[in-house]
């Protein structure tokens, strides 16, 4: 199970990048509407830089998962049928469009029609990247993963981490959003756990070996996310609506982010650990 750490890191970083990009695009619609990302040019650049950094880190981490990284360029050749090819393709498109948006926001005008067009295209690529990541695990031959838990947990990972990150900058509604997303993630983890096999139930008949996952992982994941949820509540109260203005709120937010992230990492290890690989 622990051997799957590159996949855990890749999926969490990639999903957080998508979530942050999508959630941070809210000001375009909710606030003054003058910038594609953020409410000022500096905020926009900061968000885009973090998203790009996360995506590049995810891409680099994914190399630790494959055993012939020098052949990785050929992983795009089966886009017609392979969701893994599609995932890689859409990640590369997403990276390219975010990089182009950074250039546009930096050098031209964040409010230009071109940068907005690029932003919408990048958001679409990000969504397709996330969808490919979800579909990749939802094969008919993988009943343990081919169920509601997979899309819900992947999407909520993206949205909750993205909303907390946005909460650092804008506070208020974003902390409220992150509260809702983290709460939803806890509820679905709790409710869908039996079907997802965390109690050692696995789809039968099966030629797959039984998983050997530590029993403490599921409660540890829930406890960490619940603690994070409590701190988000504290951040909302102490930050008085705009966390960036209240140091106390921001500190709560950092701790909440760390706990929610720890919960997500634990949950993801559990996700991969439940489907044991045969042989060595």
């Amino acid at each position: 199970m622990w051997k799957e750490w590159p996949l855990v890191a890749f999926t969490i970083a990639g999903q957080m990048a998508v979530g942050f990009f999508l959630v941070a695009g809210f000001p375009l619609f909710l606030l003054d509407g003058s910038h594609a990302v953020g409410t000022t040019r500096e905020e926009g650049l900061a968000v885009l830089a973090v998203v790009l950094g996360l995506l590049v880190a995810a891409a680099l981490l994914s190399f630790f998962h494959i055993h012939h990284p020098l052949r990785a360029r050929s992983s795009l050749v089966n886009i017609r049928t392979s969701w893994l090819s599609r995932e890689i393709f859409f990640e590369l498109v997403f990276i390219a469009l975010v990089a182009v948006e950074i250039v546009l926001v930096w050098g031209v005008s964040a409010a230009s029609g071109l940068s907005r067009g690029v932003h919408v295209a990048a958001a679409l690529a990000g969504i397709l990247f996330l969808l490919s990541m979800i579909r990749l695990y939802m094969l008919e031959t993988l009943p343990l993963w081919n169920q509601a838990y997979t899309p819900l947990s992947f999407a909520l990972t993206a949205l909750s981490l993205g909303a907390i990150a946005a909460g650092f900058i804008w506070g208020g509604i974003f902390i409220l959003l992150s509260l809702a997303f983290v709460a939803a993630e806890i509820v679905i983890s709790f409710l869908l756990a039996p079907g997802h096999g965390v109690y050692r139930s696995r789809p039968t008949p099966s030629l797959r070996p039984p998983a050997d996952v530590p029993r403490y992982l599921h409660p540890a994941r829930l406890a960490s996310s619940l603690a994070g949820l409590s701190l988000l509540g504290a951040a909302l109260i102490w930050g008085r609506g705009r966390a960036v203005e209240g140091l106390n709120g921001k500190e709560w937010l950092v701790a909440a982010f760390a706990l929610v992230l720890a919960g997500q990492l634990t949950g993801r290890f559990l996700f991969y650990g439940l489907l044991a690989r045969p042989g060595r």
């Binding site: 494959i66 055993h67 012939h68 990785a72 050929s74 893994l84 993988l142 690989r277």
Partner: peptide, 14 residues
């Protein structure tokens, strides 16, 4: 083969 081992998961006959 790049050794991603995705096929290992996909095949129900392992």
């Amino acid at each position: 083969c790049i050794g991603c081992r995705y096929c290992e998961w996909a095949c129900p006959y392992t």
